[in-house]
Amino acid sequence: MYAFDYQKAGSVSDALAALKAEDAQPISGGQTLIPTLKARLAAPSALIDLSGIAEMKGIEVAGGMVKIGGAVTHQSVADHAGVKAAIPALAQLAAHIGDPAVRHKGTIGGSVANNDPSACYPSACLGLGATIHSSAGDMAADEFFQGMFATALDAGQIVTGVSFPIPEKAAYMKFVQPASRFALVGVFVSKGAGGVRVAVTGASESGVFRWTAAEDALAGNFSPDSVPPAPAADGMIGDIHGSPEYRAHLVAVMTKRAVKAC
């Protein structure tokens, strides 16, 4: 790692003030950022630690919504009785990110802000039609995620929380890349007031996306048999773990499994 200064932020306003310094960068659980720094793929002048900010640590289930603070760890989401009762698919998703030691540190805000093309949480945000709360205001997930590692946030802005509308039913199915436990392909399906949503992670070179052809088909008949044939392989990720065609095929398979599990 290149050298940097480290500062724990006590509040959101503290963090935003500290992030005004040139090349300062936020760190939350650090489970992605620290390996990135070790590989010298980033050289921040300072890391501003958001993980101890009390106002970003709550979980509220009320008024048909589950609101999770940005600094809440995956394990806390997985264990939360209110989340398990309201959106079991979300608790289950959190319970299968990485491994236990990673889940004790990694946070929802970090995952959402990083928007790794294979991360699990972005698919839940998009698949449930969540609202992303940030220091730049509230944004619909549909506008927030803007491609691989890209979001609507600019440097110096942070994700402070996520609100998920409670669906009628939902399920997340992940085909894991066995070494990293990232999603080779993961599909989050929900049916609720906003209709049917199908969000896919791990597959596209443009990051998490909604598979609208499947949404339309499932809106007519919510059954695994309604899932259309695999989407085109164009623009799908191809690497040593799987070809674009393989990933495209998995999108349809995992969507069927998710619908069945709903």
Binding site: Q31, I34, V102
Partner: peptide, 9 residues
């Protein structure tokens, strides 16, 4: 709680 000490400052 368990954490990976190589992945925490």
């Amino acid at each position: 709680e368990s954490v990976k000490a190589c992945n925490m400052l």
